[in-house]
């Protein structure tokens, strides 16, 4: 028996919005420790890794490990039926081919049950090596979304360069060139407005704009985003999900031949 209750169903709605542009389907691996998902996008350029810890749920029970293969467009249709303030409970029997999403209004006067068929998906989990990154940057997630959206107008790629002085995003194309520089903030009223840089070595890497724009769909999950970079390895874009977990996107760099 698997059962997971979340008072704020909006969290799962936002998680789904954050992954459904990159992935058509994915396996939600449920265990005693929580729910995890790892999947590459169709072109195998990026990888999504989601972790929702069991202790972050309002109620969580998972007697046996369960892999739920889910069509994300179908799940999205169901999650749209939930109000933001509804309480969500996901339920599945052991070895089930169905998962039930139950939504309850706060006053418990309306209860909705949606059953969704599960799929058998080929699972290929990749081992992600522990890495000490040369640069770790934290910045407001809305700022990051804005920057990648603005620079996408100039070209398909964005160069992200990090030095002690700051972080620079650059793009160029037929209409011209664009550069956006952010310095580390010295004094902000709110932590979520801060730009912080931890740098061991300066790094400059090139990435495809369209994936960064897809990652930015996670913006509503967290006021801050963390970018981790080292030379010639994938960028990590991480959004914390309240007290329950995180979503990490790994993006393979563009490299000169």
């Amino acid at each position: 028996m698997f059962e997971a209750r979340l008072v704020q169903s909006s969290i799962l709605k936002k998680v789904l919005e954050a992954i459904k542009e990159l992935l058509n389907e994915a396996t939600f691996d449920c265990s005693d420790s929580g729910i995890q998902l790892q999947a590459m996008d169709n072109s195998h350029v990026s990888l999504v890794s989601l972790n929702l810890r069991s202790d972050g749920f309002d109620k969580y029970r998972c007697d046996r490990n369960l892999s739920m293969g889910i069509n994300l467009a179908s799940m999205s249709k169901i999650m749209k039926c939930a109000g933001n303030d509804d309480v969500l409970t996901m339920k599945a029997q052991d070895n089930a081919d169905l998962v039930t999403f139950m939504f309850e209004s706060q006053n418990q006067e309306k209860v909705m049950d949606y059953e969704m068929k599960l799929m058998n998906l080929d699972q290929e989990h990749l081992g992600i090596p522990e890495t000490d990154y040369s640069c770790v940057i934290k910045l407001p997630s809305q700022e990051f979304a804005r920057i990648v959206r603005d620079l996408s107008q100039f070209g398909e790629s964005v160069v992200i360069s990090c030095t002690k002085e700051g972080i620079k995003f650059s793009a160029g194309g037929d209409i011209g060139n664009a550069n956006i520089k952010l310095a580390q903030t010295s004094n902000v009223d709110k932590d979520e407005d801060a730009v912080t840089i931890e740098m061991q070595e300066p790094v400059s890497l090139t990435f495809a704009c369209r994936y960064l724009n897809s990652f930015a769909k996670a913006t509503p999950l967290s006021p801050q985003v963390q970018l981790s970079m080292s030379a010639d390895v994938p960028l990590v874009v991480e959004y914390k999900i309240g007290d329950i977990g995180h979503i990490r996107y790994y993006l393979a760099p563009k490299i000169e031949d």
């Binding site: 290929e124 081992g127 090139t206 563009k254 490299i255």
Partner: peptide, 14 residues
């Protein structure tokens, strides 16, 4: 122009 690499080039299959 730099070429797009695949994520599986960096991460190992078990």
């Amino acid at each position: 122009d730099p070429k797009q690499t695949k994520i599986s080039k960096f991460f190992t299959s078990p």
